[in-house]
Write a protein that binds this DNA or RNA. Sequence first.
DNA 1: ATTCTAAATGCAAACTATACGCATTTGCAT
DNA 2: ATGCAAATGCGTATAGTTTGCATTTAGAAT
Lengths: 145, 145
Amino acid sequence: MQRSENFFAHLGMKNTQGRNHLLDVLEKTEIPLTAEDIYLKLKEKSIEINLSTVYRILDLFVAKGIVSKSTSSISNKSQFELAKKEHSHHLVCIQCKKTLTLAGCPLKCYEKKLKNKTQYDITGHKLEIFGYCPDCKFFANKQEE
Amino acid sequence: MQRSENFFAHLGMKNTQGRNHLLDVLEKTEIPLTAEDIYLKLKEKSIEINLSTVYRILDLFVAKGIVSKSTSSISNKSQFELAKKEHSHHLVCIQCKKTLTLAGCPLKCYEKKLKNKTQYDITGHKLEIFGYCPDCKFFANKQEE
DNA sequence: ATTCTAAATGCAAACTATACGCATTTGCAT
DNA sequence: ATGCAAATGCGTATAGTTTGCATTTAGAAT
């Protein structure tokens, strides 16, 4: 995948192979990925890149605002995804980890109200929703008995 | 602080000193605490307990549903708080880390809608809101220039 | 009250995700 | 083409958390 030649230059970053590869992976995924996810996806494509470098590139992308970082409460690992204008949230099955990306954000109005009430300058939020997916929920109910 | 004598027995757990101390701390706090927070609070009161034990007790409390665990995106540490019927969320200043507990949960209705739409059996969610508190926001704006 | 046993704890060490120091390589301006 | 700052690889350090094992403790049985 080839992005505009000066994409990185505009942000004051060198246009390196590693950064291009990472961005490719992040552009193709619908769900947030951990550093290791990305590392392994690249390895599958026979793209060798050091895990340290993956972390460093991700940190840089976050600093430049290209990527947003969050922490999954389930796995306790950091997750990364492209920072889109219209951010989204995820519904995660606590059994099989299947993840659904939800359309829209239920907190838009709430944040405005909160801003007025608290005088905080609200810059963002993190929301994760948990549950059992249709495939797992029948089995999960059985186990509780 | 003395809770009902058979509080732990009812849940099939031994009534140990450590568990009582941990529960005391969790009952007194308004904000979620990390394992180390709890360990240090106890140390201040000259209550010596091993950090491993703190972790083990917290894991047990979570398994028994007494306590809920979450992961702060800011600090990358696990946080624990009593699992109350009426859960709450927190507004955290990304500069000074001052934390406000918010009344009510803005997701009640949303979760019902989601349940119908996705067929997931929704069991919970995690929400953190970030921003600059009144004290930090003036300074934060200055820095961006 | 004393004894006994499974469960809880302390301690040290392992483990996992992530960060870092330093030598080497690469991108890019000259 | 050349040189230099920035990026990367590699090994190692660190922080948070977990685990194995010996010792202690809670509470049941006597």
